[in-house]
Design a protein around this nucleic acid. Structure first.
Lengths: 118, 118
DNA sequence: CCTACTGTTCGAATAATTTCGAACCAATCT
DNA sequence: AGATTGGTTCGAAATTATTCGAACAGTAGG
């Protein structure tokens, strides 16, 4: 009935810590995930890692770090999970930060993104 | 005579990696150092850590991480060392990033900074 | 030259992250 | 209900980062 264990914990906007956010973004794999979410929410299955053979537990852990830092929201959606970049919360708390990171990342790793689309 | 081993290695502007920069900034102690350098270069002795009892080897290592990520420059100056935030290089490579981080950090940890000034 | 002063580097111990398989849980479909 | 799909959590192993003392190196001053 009412959702039980699997609604995960998300920090409030006011509780976001800059160093935690920076740390979450400092891993190439996590940063790439964030870039994919910049255009809008995605189901977990639509979020691609650089290496497709990475097990789901590892992928889940990457999402956990991003979620606990307050970078993404991870909510149940049907059978799977919907991932959302917490753009508004980040922007409110750290103005200009996420935009600068996304722009820098976009002009940086376009090759990998293109590879994934191919 | 000519400086020997102690001119440290600094990555070129073009070699700066976003994830390395974010990682370097993701530690509270290192971030605080960067904030102190925002107003201009400082000698190492003028850079304060949250805990004054931290040994110099640890402090040196914090600077090393910042330097190797390309966040600061560390050059010999007289008897000691002059630390400089590589603001121009960072801005050129990741427009808006360092400014957003500094602003977010400033509106975040003013208590600690005030303590140090007292 | 010798000493004092500043920092860096090295090596080892500790702590924190990452990675992965296995077990588990919730939702959907038959 | 049972089977399938999609993802989280747990626990252990491996990797990486941090911390600190000791040894070293460069500079300035006596």
């Amino acid at each position: 009935m009412t959702s039980d264990s699997l609604d995960l914990l998300h920090p409030d906007r006011d509780a976001l810590r800059l160093t935690d956010v920076l740390f979450a973004l400092s891993d190439p794999e996590r940063l790439a995930i964030v870039c994919q979410l910049a255009d809008g929410p995605l189901d977990m299955g639509q979020c691609y890692l650089s290496d497709p053979s990475i097990p789901k537990s590892t992928k889940s852990h990457l999402m956990k770090v991003l979620r606990e830092a307050g970078v993404i929201r991870n909510e149940q959606a049907g059978r799977g999970r919907r991932l959302t970049l917490r753009h508004d919360d980040l922007e409110a708390r750290f103005p200009g930060l996420i935009g600068a990171v996304l722009q820098a990342a976009a002009s940086f790793q376009p090759a990998e993104a293109a590879d994934r689309r191919a």
